[in-house]
Design a protein around this nucleic acid. Structure first.
Lengths: 208, 208
DNA sequence: ACGTTAATTTAACAACGTTAAGTTATTTTG
DNA sequence: CAAAATAACTTAACGTTGTTAAATTAACGT
C-alpha cells in the first residue's frame, strides 16, 4: 500500500480515478449527500489523499463539472453535422434536454447550483472551441439560422436569441428536475412539455 | 432562562419568531450556509429549542417555503385586477420575475432545490384558492386568455400552455440566479432577456 | 406542600470537511 | 553504502454541523 515516487502520468491517473469515483457517487445521490471519506473508500484510499490532488471538495466538484461540460459538448457535437440549419437547431435542443434529463445530478451541478464562476483561465475547456464549448456551439447553431434569414426581421441580436432559447429549454428541464414530484402541480408529460416549448420558441422566433 | 406553561397562541408566536429569524438569515446567505445554532442565537434561544417546534432543519425550511408561497401569491394578487386578459397575463409574468429576482434565495428555496414535495395535506396553503395558490392564479390567468380565444387555434390544453409559460419565465430567472456571474457567457441584460422571453412566448402562443 | 408537567438548557454524539502530525518507502547525496 | 531528504500516504485530531438524551427550572393541579 505504501509510497513510491510517482510519475506525472500516474498522478494524473489517480486524479481521474478520484474524479470518476466522485462523479459516480455525485450523479447517483447528489453533491451534498456524498462525503469525502466515502469517495476515498471507494478507491481504497484515505480521505486525506484526495486533498493531495484537489484543494477542497468545491475544487473537486468544479473539476468534475469542467469535464462534464466537455461531455455535454461532445454529446451535442453530433447534431452539428445536420445540414439544414433549422433542423440542426431543433436537434441541438433535443440533445441538450436529453443530457439534462439523463444526468439530472450532473445537470444540477452544472447549471442549477451556484459555484464560483467557471473561470476560463482555470478551466481545461477551450472557450469558443466548437469541440469543447457547448455554449459556443449553441451560439453558432443559432447564428447560422440567423444568417439564413429565418428569424423574424425585428430580431437583430443572435446572442439574445441564443440566450432566450437556452432559457426556454433550461426552464423545462430545471422545473422537471426540481419539481417533477410535486403533486401540487398536475404536470403534463415531460416529453410533451419539451415539444411544446420547442414549438413555441420556433413560432415565437422564426419568420412566418 | 425560565419556563412557563404557554398558551397555544404563545407557541404559535414563538414558532413564527423562529421562522422569521431563519428566513432573514436564509434569504441573505442561503439555506446551506445558515446553522441552527445561529438562528437560535438570533432570537435568544438555544439551538435545541427549535426542535420543539420543527422536526428538523428540513421541516423548518419547508414551513418557511410554505408561507413564502403565500407571499408570492399575495404579491401576484394585484395583477389579477387588470381587466384585459392579455395585459393581465403579461403583468403577471413580470410580477413573477420580479419576485424571483428580488428574493433570489427565497426563489432558490422554493423552485430550485428539491425538497420532499409540497404536500397539500401538510400545507397551510389552500390549493386552488386564488388568494393563496400562485399556480392556480397562473392557470386562471392563462385560462382566461384561452377562453377569450386569443391563443393559436391548435393549442387546446391551457394547462400545458401555463406550464410552458412558467418554464419560460423560470428559465430566465433560474439562469440569472445561478449563472449571472459566470463570465463564460456574455449575458445580455436581465431586463432585456425577460422582455425577449415574454415577447417570444406571446408570439409563439397567441393567434396572429 | 408536593409531585406532575411543560419549557428550556447543557452535554453529548456521530458525521462532516479539513489540517497537522506521523509513517513508510524510495531517491538523492556525502 | 549509509544517511539525509523527499514523496505518498495514513492516522489523529480539530472545529462545526444537525440532532438527541439528560438535566434544570418554574408554574400548575391536587
Amino acid at each position: 500500500m505504501p509510497p513510491k515516487p510517482k510519475t506525472e502520468f500516474e498522478r494524473q491517473q489517480l486524479r481521474t480515478l478520484i474524479m470518476d469515483a466522485a462523479r459516480e457517487l455525485f450523479v447517483s445521490r447528489g453533491v451534498e449527500a456524498v462525503t469525502m471519506r466515502e469517495i476515498a473508500k471507494r478507491i481504497g484510499y484515505s480521505a486525506t489523499s484526495i486533498y493531495l490532488h484537489f484543494a477542497d471538495k468545491e475544487a473537486l466538484i468544479r473539476a468534475i463539472c469542467d469535464t462534464d461540460f466537455l461531455a455535454l459538448a461532445d454529446a451535442l457535437k453530433n447534431n452539428l453535422a445536420i445540414t439544414d440549419p433549422v433542423e440542426r437547431m431543433l436537434a441541438f435542443g433535443r440533445g441538450y434536454a436529453q443530457f439534462a434529463l439523463n444526468y439530472p445530478n450532473h445537470y444540477r451541478m452544472m447549471f442549477m447550483t451556484e459555484h464560483p464562476p467557471c473561470d476560463p483561465a482555470h478551466s481545461c475547456i477551450q472557450q469558443n472551441n466548437a469541440e469543447q464549448d457547448a455554449y459556443f456551439q449553441l451560439k453558432t447553431v443559432i447564428n447560422e439560422v440567423f444568417l439564413a434569414g429565418k428569424f423574424k426581421s425585428d430580431l437583430k441580436d443572435p446572442d439574445l436569441i441564443a440566450q432566450t432559447v437556452w432559457a426556454g429549454m433550461h426552464g423545462v428541464c430545471a422545473l422537471q428536475i426540481s419539481m417533477a414530484n410535486d403533486i401540487w402541480v398536475n404536470w403534463a408529460g415531460i416529453e410533451q412539455r419539451l415539444q411544446m416549448m420547442q414549438l413555441t420558441l420556433m413560432r415565437g422566433l422564426m419568420r412566418d
